[in-house]
Nucleic acid binder design. Structure first.
Lengths: 275, 275
DNA sequence: ACCTGAACACCGTTCAAGT
DNA sequence: ACCTGAACACCGTTCAAGT
C-alpha cells in the first residue's frame, strides 16, 4: 500500500466491484466485442457469491449497454455505441499471432480501468503488466515510469469526454456545467482526486468564466474564480475516498456549488472598484 | 514511493528543507532543550552547502524561537514557549540508561515531524524506527499498523492547537477563523490534505456555523455549510502538494474563501422558504 | 511474557544478459 | 538493436525464535 495512502476508496458492494472488474476486462480488450462475458453461474463460482448477486452484476452491465444477452449463446460484449474510434470489432490490422500490440494508449486505458475497478492503491506496474499479459519491463518501453503513467492517466481522463450538450452562454451556467462535469469525472475515477492534476483541469474552468469579462470583470479575477471552483470540486472529491463510512456526497456537492456560485455572482455584479 | 502518489510536496529551497529536518530532530526529542544544534560550519559540511545558506537555516529557527544563540557556546534549543505540557527540560522521570521510553505519543510526534521535514512519501515504518533509534518491530507494540499511525497523526495535528485568540461571535467571523486555522494546519503539514481526515475536522466547522441558527437557519443546513467550507479548504490544500510548479496559493485561498462566505451570507440572509 | 530478527510477499526501477 | 529476467533497494507485516 502507498505511503500515507489509506485503503483507497470505500469498499463498494460486491456486485458493484465485480461489475467494475468485468468493465475493466472489457475496456482493456481482454474480452472483445461479440465475445462472451462470464455467465451468472461462472461469476457466482469465481467470486464466491450467490447467483442472485451474480445476476445483478450482469444487469448492471446490460443497463450500461456494455453487454447484451444473446438467446442460446449467453451474454456478450456489445458493440461500442456511436461507432467511436478505437472501438473496433475483432482484432486490429497490426496484430501478430493473436495478441494485439502493446501501445502507450492501451497501457494507459488499461491502467485507468484497473484503478477504477480495484482502487488506486491496487495499481502497480506488476499488476498492470499481468492484466495486459506482458512482462513488467515491457511497460517501460512505452512509459518512462509510474509517475508519468499516472500523469498520462489523468490527462486521458480529463480529455475523455468534453461537456455533453451545448455550452450555456452565461458564465454561471458554464461554470456550473464544468464543475458538474469534473465532479462526474471524480466520481467515475475516484483515484483522480489525489493525483497531480493536468493543466487541462484549470483551462476548462477558466474558459467557463470568460463571458463575465464582457460584464467588466477584471481579467485577473478569472484564474482566481476558476481555481476556487476547481478546488472546491476537488476537495469534495478527495473526501469521496476518505473511507468506507463516507456518506453520499452528492447533495453536499450540489448545495456547496450553489453557495459558491452565489458568492461569485455577488463579486461579479458589484465589480469592486479596488484593483 | 506510494502508489498513485506523486513526488510528495514541491521540493523546497535547501535552507527550508534543512531547517525542517532540524525542527524534526528537536520535535522528536533527539536534540533537547539546552542542547546544541549543529553549528553553521557543521551544517555547511553535513549537507554540502555554503556557510551563508547554513546561516540562513539557523536564522529561520531563531526567528521561530525554537533555538537561541548562547555567546561562547553556540546555538541551543530554546525552552518551549508558554511552558506547554510535554515540553520538559532534561530527561523524563521514567528514563532508563539514557534512552527515553518509547511511547505512542512520541512515535506519533516523531512521525509528524518526519513527514513535515521529508514529505509524506518519506514516512515509512522503517525510516520512523531509525529516526527513533529503535527496532522497526518495536513500533508495533504501540500502534497496530501504519494506517492507524497515519490516522493518529491526523488526530494529533487537528488537536495540536485550537483557535488562537478569542472566537468571534458571528457565524461569518467564526467560519473564516476556522477555515484559516485549518488552512494553516495544511500549510504546516502538507501531507495532511491527502490523509483520511478525523471527525474533529468537521466538528469545529459545524460549531462555527451554529450562531446562524439563531437567525433562523434550518438546522439541516449547518453540516452542509460546514462541509462546503471544509471541502474548499482541503481542495486548495491538496493542490498545495501538486508539484514543484505550484504557485503561491495564499492569495487564491483568501479570494475563494471570501466568495464562499459571500455565498453563505446570501443563503443565510434570504432564509429560503423551500425545505 | 515480552521483545524482535528473519522471513514473506510485495513495490519501482536498473542493468546486464539474452536474442 | 531490441527485449526482458534477474537483481537491487526498498516497502508493511507475520511469526517464530530468542531472552
Amino acid at each position: 500500500m502507498g505511503v500515507l495512502e489509506q485503503p483507497a476508496a470505500a469498499a463498494p458492494a460486491p456486485y458493484r466491484r465485480i461489475a467494475a472488474e468485468l468493465r475493466a476486462r472489457i475496456a482493456s480488450g481482454e474480452i472483445r466485442t461479440g465475445e462472451k462475458v462470464p455467465s451468472v453461474r461462472q461469476i457466482a463460482q469465481e467470486w464466491g457469491i450467490t447467483a442472485s448477486t451474480a445476476g445483478k452484476v450482469l444487469s448492471v452491465l446490460r443497463a450500461e449497454g456494455l453487454v447484451r444477452a444473446v438467446p442460446g449463446v449467453g451474454t456478450v460484449v456489445a458493440a461500442a455505441p456511436g461507432g467511436a474510434p478505437g472501438a473496433r470489432t475483432g482484432p486490429p490490422p497490426g496484430r501478430v499471432n493473436g495478441t494485439r500490440p502493446l501501445t502507450r494508449d492501451r497501457i494507459v486505458r488499461t491502467a485507468v480501468a484497473l484503478a477504477d475497478a480495484r482502487g488506486g492503491a491496487a495499481l502497480s506496474m506488476r499488476a498492470l503488466a499481468a492484466e495486459l499479459r506482458v512482462p513488467t519491463m515491457a511497460l517501460y518501453r512505452h512509459v518512462p515510469g509510474k509517475d508519468d503513467l499516472v500523469a498520462l492517466m489523468a490527462d486521458a481522463v480529463f480529455a475523455e469526454a468534453g461537456l455533453s450538450g451545448s455550452a450555456p452562454a452565461g458564465w454561471r451556467g458554464r461554470l456550473e456545467a464544468v464543475a458538474r462535469h469534473q465532479w462526474s469525472l471524480y466520481r467515475r475515477h475516484p483515484w483522480l482526486a489525489r493525483t497531480v492534476l493536468p493543466a487541462a483541469a484549470a483551462g476548462l474552468m477558466e474558459w467557463a468564466v470568460s463571458p463575465a469579462l464582457r460584464q467588466g470583470l477584471e481579467p485577473g479575477a478569472v484564474p482566481r474564480i476558476a481555481a476556487t471552483v476547481a478546488s472546491y470540486v476537488r476537495g469534495v472529491a478527495v473526501s469521496l475516498t476518505d473511507g468506507p463510512a463516507t456518506p453520499d456526497l452528492d447533495p453536499f456537492f450540489t448545495f456547496g456549488l450553489a453557495r459558491l456560485l452565489d458568492g461569485v455572482h455577488t463579486y461579479i455584479e458589484q465589480r469592486p472598484a479596488e484593483p
